[in-house]
Write a protein that binds this DNA or RNA. Sequence first.
DNA 1: AATCGGAGTCGAAGCGCTTCGACAACCTAT
DNA 2: ATAGGTTGTCGAAGCGCTTCGACTCCGATT
Lengths: 337, 337
Amino acid sequence: MVTLAEVAQHAGVSASTVSYVLSGKRSISATTRQRVEQSIRELGYHPNAGARALASSRSNIIALMIPLRTDMYVPVMMEIAIAVATTARTHGYDVLLLTGEEGPDAVRRVTGSGLADAMILMDVQLDDERLPLLRGTDQPSVLIGLPADTTGLTCVDLDFKATGALCVEHLAMLGHRDIAVIGEAPAVYERHTGFAERTLDGLRLRSQELGMRLLHRPCEGGYDAMAVTLARILDERPGTTGFVVQNESAVEPLLALLRQQGRAVPEDVSVVAVCPDQVAVQASVRLTSVSIPAQEMGRHAVEQLVAKLDGRGSDEVVLIAPELTIRASTGPAPSQS
Amino acid sequence: MVTLAEVAQHAGVSASTVSYVLSGKRSISATTRQRVEQSIRELGYHPNAGARALASSRSNIIALMIPLRTDMYVPVMMEIAIAVATTARTHGYDVLLLTGEEGPDAVRRVTGSGLADAMILMDVQLDDERLPLLRGTDQPSVLIGLPADTTGLTCVDLDFKATGALCVEHLAMLGHRDIAVIGEAPAVYERHTGFAERTLDGLRLRSQELGMRLLHRPCEGGYDAMAVTLARILDERPGTTGFVVQNESAVEPLLALLRQQGRAVPEDVSVVAVCPDQVAVQASVRLTSVSIPAQEMGRHAVEQLVAKLDGRGSDEVVLIAPELTIRASTGPAPSQS
DNA sequence: AATCGGAGTCGAAGCGCTTCGACAACCTAT
DNA sequence: ATAGGTTGTCGAAGCGCTTCGACTCCGATT
């Protein structure tokens, strides 16, 4: 393994000079720089990560905590993770993948050992047990998601409340008055994952303001669960003409069931989904949807973090404005004949 | 930040003793050990990762290279990644997430810098450009997937050839004679991803042996692409009664289209999928499928790697035997009336 | 001509840990 | 009683890098 010292010798300069060429923290004459760079290339030198971390107390690693469960939003998680990894690389950072499994201990371990310089937390619950730890350390962090109390924290998330409102408004504009919400699995609500509850808030508030009737039903994904849920909804509110779906794995089953029952989309009922664009365009009916900007969230989180690590940037909550794309699954409410 | 030296002082022993308590590499008297452990707990000590890596030339990190593209098998990738991360933790390793983006350079960077002790590569192509680099380094690695030439490499994968054969056998046993294969997107075949081609090999070989007719069509996921593909297939081979689907995002569209055309599953046509169990049970018809054991693959890869790092274990190719689960999407071929 | 300051380079200290050799203390077999 | 072997502990030498003075040179300022 090639070391700094070897490069220095090869280039005929001192070790510190090589170091300064690499870091740019002191000025180096053009000729020296070139000679050093040449040697680095010739010898195929890569700075040793451990030594660098030890000497500089900077690991150039960002930790990413992803949820262990895969009961929801797998593609979204994946997309965020990839966006985080690629964005981090453009800033010279690598990404350490932690699963929720260790819980709060992972936070202690990482901050305590200097394994990572900063962390990004996903799947944040309203009252997450990791939050006190984050507040109690000087290690920068960014949450993807929104807890109940955000003081002293930096968060990035889609504005799910506005998302809910936007869905309702769109359906209202089309003349729908009776709306059903197919939500995430009950477990998601039980563990108080913020985004699900905030979407619901937005839906409820806006529908009330607009004088619409709203029925919310959580739903495990899959065909069978959706069948049961749909039957109950139509039993309770036969006049339902609009659906808002916030559960990827319920989308296609819902469409299939509606088709099967002879309810045409969008002629008889309209469906708005909250899902990544990819899911919306691949569905059997191209879905009107509010997209979940997974990539943007991941990128944003890293950039906030890098800003903090560079001494710029501060705690703030960034809520990305939702955008509704009209596709083929929504249309005017059927006239009440 | 608490250091080894502080722990040593607090416990009234030398630094090296604390180190030996931690590593267990020399025997320590019970009383000393307890005193040291007590101090560690009281002070909340965590060994500094950089210092440790520098001194021991072991980072206790495993690098995981995941594909950048998300055009296939997202849930599988995710499940593997999570399995790798959790399994690695049980062996005292953390996982560094690398995307394919950097290509072979990532391998150079990681091995050169000592960032990781070993690596796991996913989405291996038959003639992957990273392979020469792996062979040329003494850093252990495991591939998830199977390249054309496996000499000097350790690989873990589902036995896709046997998977293909298994699907054909099942359909043959039920009396089907005309089979269509809905494959991955054309791009997947173009870049010579081993698993797709090997499945196809298995399908072709076994169907030939059993005297069945087989038609293979790649297919982008999604409803529209599936509609076109299906129309072409039925046009060319109207007598097709069995489908093998190896593309998650084509499964549900296929079922919807068949339903729409009045072809009942499994009465008129049978469908076998190659997909994770979760997908199979969530579909609108519970699918007979060969499951992709993502978790097992991830776990296995880590265990191979850890064995190598411990000086045990050697290069070998582990092909996991496929298992077919019969569910509701396959049945006897319709009698030829 | 004397002084100042910036640019460019070097030497050395040290980051927190592992690990090797040394050594004291003790136990066992002669 | 003595040699030989264990067992438990310590001191010190690095691992490869960053970074802080310190030093030299040289052109610019008075």
